[in-house]
Every structure is written in structure tokens, then in C-alpha cells.
Write a protein that binds this DNA or RNA. Structure first.
Length: 547
RNA sequence: GCGCCAGUAGCUCAGUUGGAUAGAGCAUCAGCCUUCUAAGCUGAGGGUCACAGGUUCGAAUCCUGUCUGGCGUACCA
């Protein structure tokens, strides 16, 4: 935000004049607006090193502040030594015209220009359907990818999957058992740790429908066919669900390719060369204890099969070698165990592991009227992401799954989500947008020309100024939400923005007032609409023109 | 046992990396539509920030310990 930069320069130049080099302070909006528009704790943080009372430091600093009186109205000292800045009300409307000029680009910045980030999310193996937790992962990942895009980064959205190994065998055997059962052998044994979902029965039924009983002998070829059929079936469903959420990933990275391309062999060779692995009990162990971790782990089992750690390390190395400046992994809480191992290995292979940012989100529970919901009422089976989408719609799902901080458990209130009313926070935002569109339409009908250069400085009552301030905070919000990788920050901001608009709308008549004011207020509404729409698009949510 | 995450209003959650009187939504109660969408707005009540110590000008925030819940802690992924 430009005003914050301006304030920072004032402080910095005062520090320079005093010959002090110091940056351990913040400039922030005080919670209580009576304290001004921006506030700094510089005098208090300096107190420690200068060994002077905060208030005297503040007084001395203020004496050498140089600023434009048209921008800053008042600088004052308060409390234990806060320096408060109060801006002229006139400055805000002037900043509004750039919002309207930038339109769909308002809020973007180029701080990430020339940098490449890889965001890996969803990454569900094709052995089943997406559930709520996957949905949270998907929505967080997609929103974070959008945020990086808005901050000027070159973004690659990636999905990592494994279509080999035990779990796929298990999928094949599970389908095969259902297949035999549906062909008449009702007591055909189901594998003990098989996939119990109803979808397995659906897949079996489809195989019967298309191919009859030709795979019932269960030869290797038969099982291979069934495995591939099941994999494709699951992947198609997963992709279809993601498409409903408007999520489209750029790269689907198959773990298997790491083997075909020799990257696994190369990794083992390199680890051997670095003396970071050893053999014991017929297995190959990764010497994590040499890398500062507690326990060594097996990376190749005595059977010759690798454990998941090995390809995970090779995969991260591959991402580094593809030249990304930042790697973001989004995992559910159950995947936490492998992370320190992968990062340690990556570091000892000579890569900068601080470029890997791992985001762990906690689980989602579905509730209704305070009770936990496990089954879908419609299907009577466990709730899939698709069931939820059918029930409450894409916008609500996307919003609800990002509206809490990543690291907290998320309670998805089905009753609230289903509610098409003011209680539902999504509709609150969308309603503000639709309301603006309706006013703008009406203005158009009445032949009001918005393009004529508006005199925005006529906007000066508190409702107008508060709304303008909120609109201007959007840029900073996009940056903060991205830096912290917290989509929730943006969701909260949009609610505040919509609230500021609703208040303005309630208090200030837009159409039918004196012409100059009408034009100015219409432009304010337009700027709000632009900001709301841009923010919603980052969250992947529609901004309806009518509700 | 050990590791990670969490514990803030009746419920669901924020709290800008240590700042000023701890906030919001929902729920409850009381108001506001002859005028641009009432899916809106206004007001009220509601708190031992899990507990106990410590660090300092100043702690919901940092440190130590305790308690509670979730997730991990495989030659599963």
C-alpha cells in the first residue's frame, strides 16, 4: 500500500538524519481508529538499544519528520510511545482512480517477476474418489497458486501420483473380488485390507457390462487389465471432480517415470557416493542419523522394492533440477512423517532445502446441527467431495474449505453451507457484488455516463472513506496472504470489504443525488465491484451479476 | 514414550510474528423497508485467552512444566 511506503520513508529518513540504522519496527493499522490511520512502534523498539524512554525518542524523531501536509494531517505520540499518523481524508479518493483504471489487474503486483514456483497439491493416487480432506487440499493449493500468480510469479500447478506398487495391486484385487461376487460367487473372499468403498462395486459392474466374464480367471494379464481399468476409472472421476471446482493442474507427474528415467538409480548411486546409505538385514537404509535426525529409515526393502521415501526424495530433487525458485508442498496432517527425511536428504544432496515450503493442513469434519456427519443422506454411503458439491455447490465448497487457517481443524457445517441466506458467508460476498451490478445496470438504463472524469474528491463522509480505505487495502492483502500462504486472510478481507460496501449502500444513496456526487459514488461502487470480483477470482469463486 | 498441530464469547473461528480497551460470523434479545436487491443495516448482552510459573516498559502471542483433543511415530503411501 502506497501510504505505508510513504510513512516508512518518513521514518527512514528521520533515522538517517539521526545516524541510526535500525529496521526492527513495524508500521500497522491500529485496532482503534482513534489512534490514526497508521501507527509505528519504532520509538519503543529503539528504546532498548538507545536506552532512552520511548516517548523522548518519539519526540526527537518527530522533530525531523518531513512530509506533505496535504497527505498527512497529523503526527502524534500516544500511549507508551506509539507514533501515530493521521492522513488527510482528501488523499483517499485520489488513490481510487487507479483501481478503476487497472480493472481486472487491480491487486496484481510484479514482486515475483522472473521467479518460478511449483505448487504441488491434491496428489491423490488413483485408487479411489476424492473426499473432504482432499477437497481442502485442492482448494488451498489452487488458491495459493492463484495468489502467487497475482504476485507475479510463474506458477506450475502439479499433481504427483503413483500408479504402481502395492496399493494398485490392492485396487485390482479388490475390484476382482467384487467382480467375481457379481458374477455369481457371492462368497468369493474379499481381500482383508482391500478397498471397501461402494465405487469398487461400480467399477466391477462396469467391467461386466463392457467385457462380461472374460477376466474371471484372474491371470496376471486379467489382473493387469482390471488394475488399469480401475486406475483410469478413478483418475477420470478425480479429474472430473477437480474440474467442477475449476481446478486444472499443469503437470501430472507419474512417480513411475522416476524409475524409467533412471532417476532412482542415480539417487541411490549419489547417496552411496556421499556415504549416506548402508545395507543391513538385506535392506538399504538411509543414514538420517548422519543428517541430524534421530532414526535411520529403510529406503529399499529386503524384497528389493523401494519404500515411499526414496521416490519422494528423487521427486523433490527432480523439481529442484527443473529450476524452480520455490517448491510448495501441500499435505494433509497424515503425511507429516516423511517431510523431515526428504528435506534432510535434499539438503545433503546439495540443494537449498529452505526453498521447500511444506504446508500441512489439518483434517476436515463434516457436521450438521452440531453432530458429526459421516454418511451422505442421499446415497447412504460415506461422503465424497462430489456428494458435497451436489449438495451445496462449487462456490460454497471452495469458500468453506479455505475460510479457516490451514493449521487448524476445519469444521464444515453442512447446515450453514446449505443455507441460501444471509447466514452463509459466501452469499454475503456474492450479494454485495450482485447489488453493485444492479445499481450499475440501473445507472446505464438511465443513460448516466460513468466514463466522464469523476470528481472523486467529493467523497468525504465516513462511510465513503471507510469503503475506499478497504478497497485500497486489497493489494497489501494479496501480498500478505501469499507470503503467509494463508488463503483465509483474503477470505476475511473480502468479508470486511463487502461489509463496508453494505454499510455505504445503506447510508448513502447512489442514484438520484446531485450529479457530481452521483458520478463519484457510482465510481466508488464500480471500484468495489472490481475489487470484490478480483478477490473472488483468486478464491476461485464466481461473482454473480444477479442473485 | 517421542514428534507435529490445536485449546480464545453458547458454537465456529480471527488476532498482521511482543503493543494501546482481546475481535468477527453464527446463535440470543431489541430495532430499521412509500425510494438504487432486507441474501442488507443498527444496537445490546456474552471472556480467568486450558492451567501454573518465568522472561520485560508491555504476553493470547516468547520460554519451561502440566492437562485435554487430533494426527503421526512401518522393510504401508
Amino acid at each position: 500500500m502506497e501510504l505505508k511506503d510513504y510513512t516508512k520513508k518518513i521514518i527512514e529518513s528521520a533515522l538517517n538524519k539521526a545516524g541510526i540504522s535500525f529496521s526492527d519496527y513495524i508500521i500497522e493499522e491500529p485496532k482503534n481508529p482513534e489512534f490514526g490511520d497508521l501507527s509505528s512502534n519504532i520509538a519503543m523498539t529503539l528504546a532498548k538499544t538507545l536506552k532512552k524512554a520511548p516517548r523522548t525518542i518519539a519526540e526527537e524523531l518527530i522533530k525531523s519528520f518531513e512530509f506533505d501536509n496535504n497527505i498527512i494531517e497529523e503526527v502524534s505520540i500516544a500511549g507508551q510511545g506509539f507514533i501515530n499518523f493521521k492522513f488527510s481524508k482528501k488523499i483517499y479518493p485520489l488513490l481510487l482512480s487507479s483501481v478503476i483504471e487497472e480493472k481486472e489487474n487491480y491487486g496484481k503486483n510484479n514482486s515475483g517477476e522472473g521467479k518460478r514456483v511449483n505448487v504441488e497439491y491434491v496428489s491423490v493416487n488413483p485408487t479411489g474418489l476424492l473426499h473432504l480432506g482432499h477437497g481442502r487440499n485442492a482448494c488451498i493449493g489452487d488458491t495459493i497458486a492463484n495468489l502467487y500468480k497475482w504476485n507475479g510469479w510463474d506458477v506450475t500447478r502439479e499433481y504427483y501420483f503413483n500408479n504402481a506398487g502395492n496399493q494398485m495391486k490392492n485396487l485390482a484385487l479388490s475390484i476382482y473380488a467384487r467382480y467375481r461376487q457379481q458374477l455369481g460367487e457371492t462368497d468369493f473372499p474379499f481381500p482383508e485390507d482391500g478397498y471397501h468403498g461402494e465405487y469398487i462395486k461400480t467399477i466391477a459392474a462396469e467391467i461386466i457390462e463392457k467385457y462380461g466374464s472374460q477376466y474371471q480367471n484372474g491371470t496376471d494379464d486379467d489382473l493387469n487389465f482390471i488394475r488399469k481399468f480401475g486406475e483410469n476409472w478413478c483418475f477420470d472421476k478425480i479429474k472430473a471432480t477437480l474440474k467442477r471446482l475449476n481446478i486444472k493442474q499443469d503437470v501430472f507427474f507419474n512417480e513411475d517415470s522416476l524409475y524409467h528415467d533412471g532417476k532412482i538409480d542415480k539417487l541411490i548411486a549419489d547417496l552411496k557416493r556421499l556415504d549416506l546409505v548402508y545395507e543391513k538385514d538385506g535392506a538399504l537404509w538411509l543414514a538420517l542419523s548422519k543428517m541430524g535426525l534421530k532414526d535411520d529409515r529403510v529406503i529399499v526393502k529386503s524384497s528389493g522394492e523401494p519404500t515411499y521415501r526414496l521416490p519422494d526424495i528423487a521427486y523433490h530433487r527432480d523439481k529442484f533440477e527443473r529450476g524452480f525458485d520455490l517448491l510448495i508442498d501441500i499435505f494433509g496432517a497424515d503425511h507429516i512423517a516423511t517431510i523431515p527425511d526428504v528435506l534432510a536428504a535434499i539438503k545433503y544432496l546439495g540443494f537449498d532445502s529452505s526453498k521447500v515450503r511444506v504446508l500441512i493442513h489439518q483434517f476436515v469434519t463434516l457436521t450438521e446441527n452440531g453432530e458429526q456427519v459421516k454418511m451422505s443422506k442421499r446415497t447412504g454411503k460415506s461422503y465424497t467431495l462430489d456428494d458435497l458439491l451436489d449438495e451445496v455447490g462449487e462456490d460454497v465448497v471452495r469458500f468453506f474449505l479455505i475460510m479457516r487457517g490451514i493449521s487448524t481443524h476445519l469444521e464444515f457445517d453442512l447446515g450453514l453451507a446449505r443455507e441460501q441466506s444471509e447466514k452463509n458467508p459466501v452469499f454475503y460476498l456474492q450479494y454485495a457484488h450482485a447489488r453493485i451490478c444492479s445499481v450499475l445496470d440501473l445507472a446505464k438504463e438511465r443513460g448516466i455516463n460513468l466514463d466522464r472524469k469523476p470528481n472523486l474528491s467529493i467523497l468525504e463522509n465516513n462511510y465513503e472513506i471507510d469503503l475506499i480505505k478497504k478497497i485500497l487495502k486489497f493489494k497489501e492483502t494479496v501480498t500478505t496472504a501469499c507470503d503467509k500462504c494463508e488463503p483465509q486472510i483474503l477470505a476475511d478481507y473480502l468479508r470486511e470489504l463487502a461489509n463496508a460496501f453494505h454499510i455505504f449502500y445503506h447510508e448513502c444513496r447512489i442514484l438520484g443525488v446531485e450529479e457530481e456526487l452521483q458520478t463519484a459514488r457510482l465510481n466508488l461502487a464500480l471500484a468495489t465491484k472490481i475489487t470484490l470480483k478480483n478477490g473472488l477470482s483468486i478464491l476461485g469463486i464466481n461473482a454473480p451479476e444477479r442473485m
